[in-house]
Design a protein around this nucleic acid. Sequence first.
DNA 1: ATGGGGCACAACAGATTTGTTGTCTTTTAA
DNA 2: TTAAAAGACAACAAATCTGTTGTGCCCCAT
Lengths: 71, 71
Amino acid sequence: MNKEQLLKKLGSRIRIIRIEKGMTQGELANSIGKDQQSIQRLESGRVNPSVFYLHEIALGLDVELKDLFHI
Amino acid sequence: MNKEQLLKKLGSRIRIIRIEKGMTQGELANSIGKDQQSIQRLESGRVNPSVFYLHEIALGLDVELKDLFHI
DNA sequence: ATGGGGCACAACAGATTTGTTGTCTTTTAA
DNA sequence: TTAAAAGACAACAAATCTGTTGTGCCCCAT
């Protein structure tokens, strides 16, 4: 799996979890002190996020960090 | 869990897996085109690594990416 | 038709990671 | 004891992330 594929899969997984939880990008962002554009960039796979950033995302989604990587 | 704790735990877990596999920092590094100092910095928890970097680490350790996060 | 909510993309500055080189200490083996 | 291997830390440049602002599109309700 190359870098682009990995980031797109990760972004898609996060988006799916967010929608399952009934949250908007803005709501997820606000819950962890970020803004909508940052979440959008992540879900679209345009960045290679850091572990701690994903840790915060997991908190906002109320899932375990490792659950973001079932990809 | 704060940032510092997370990164230290992640680094420790990677170190444990590496040693279980009988690899040195240099061997892990070489197997994925990095160098020893980069692995050392990761295992000591002094950096907040990117997802793709950890993906490469997982390849070098022959484990799944999600396995690095059982912390 | 107008306005608001949700989402997408670009660009900027500042902060941070990553690759790299250099050096040092500790451990292991001869 | 000596040398080599393994690991630790610092600092630099280049690349990249992250926070932020600005903007635009689409859908839906008023």
